[in-house]
Simulated assay, not measured.
Amino acid sequence: MAAYGYTPQDIFGRGRGRPGLSRGASTAKYRDPASSATWSGRGRAPNWIRDARNRDRFLIRNQVTA
């Protein structure tokens, strides 16, 4: 690759996925009172909140929303 003057970006592109859809890091929305583990609410739910019917009791209060 270097012998021909190519960079990894030339061959593989700048990143994976569709361009412009990056969300970046998200803040924690839920907290486990027993272990203080947090979850943003995105993706697969962790075991400590997975079976909860009402997730309101796990919400982190005093969050600043935009």
Rank of each mutant, 00 (worst) to 15 (best):
A45R: 14
T7I: 00
T7F: 00
G5I: 04
S40W: 08
M1H: 11
T65A: 11
D51M: 02
A2P: 02
S36F: 09
W48N: 08
P8L: 02
Y6G: 00
Q9S: 06
V64I: 12
G24A: 13
P33A: 09
R61A: 05
R42Q: 06
I11H: 00
G15F: 14
T27I: 11
R42I: 06
W39D: 09
S22C: 03
A3P: 00
D10I: 01
R44V: 10
R14K: 13
R55Q: 07
A3R: 00
S35W: 12
R16Q: 15
Y30I: 11
R57G: 05
S36K: 12
R61F: 02
T27F: 14
Y30D: 10
G24F: 13
D51Y: 10
S40G: 11
S35T: 15
S40V: 04
G41Y: 09
G20C: 04
R31W: 04
N54C: 04
G41T: 07
I60R: 09
P8I: 00
T65K: 15
Q63V: 11
N54R: 08
M1P: 03
Y4E: 00
R18Q: 10
I49E: 03
V64C: 06
S22K: 14
R61C: 01
R50T: 04
G24R: 08
Q9E: 13
P46Y: 11
A34W: 01
A34F: 02
R42G: 07
A28T: 01
I49H: 03
A3M: 03
I60L: 08
S36V: 02
R31Y: 08
R16H: 05
A3H: 01
L21W: 13
G20W: 12
T27H: 12
R55D: 05
A45C: 13
R18A: 06
S35D: 13
W48K: 06
Q63H: 02
N62W: 04
S22Q: 12
S26I: 03
K29C: 11
K29D: 06
A37L: 10
R18F: 08
G20P: 03
G43C: 08
D51P: 00
G5Y: 02
Y6I: 01
R53M: 05
P8D: 14
S36M: 13
